[in-house]
């Protein structure tokens, strides 16, 4: 029997255009994203499951959900 495994996803922040507003932090259900030293948002890869809530909320649309290559 063939089993289909969904590839893992996670959020990636386009650090250069991030305005560090913290909108993503407020909506993350797993506390997997934080604003690092007021410069840009930073994803904790251990916690992020790639749900995409932060990407939808980001006013600058700089967060992308990508598949994680094994």
């Amino acid at each position: 029997m063939e089993t289909k495994t969904r590839s893992k996803r996670r959020a990636y922040v386009g650090t250069d255009s991030c305005v560090a507003c913290g909108c993503c932090v407020k909506v993350c259900p797993l506390n997997a994203i934080s604003v690092f030293r007021g410069i840009a948002a930073k994803v904790n890869p251990e916690r992020c499951v790639g749900c995409g809530k932060c990407a939808r909320e980001c006013p600058a649309s700089v967060i992308e959900i990508r598949e994680v290559r094994p």
């Binding site: 922040v13 650090t15 250069d16 007021g38 410069i39």
Partner: peptide, 11 residues
């Protein structure tokens, strides 16, 4: 936090 630029770069 000048050194922060390098640390946060994820791309």
């Amino acid at each position: 936090n000048r050194e922060g630029d390098i640390v946060t770069d994820q791309r």
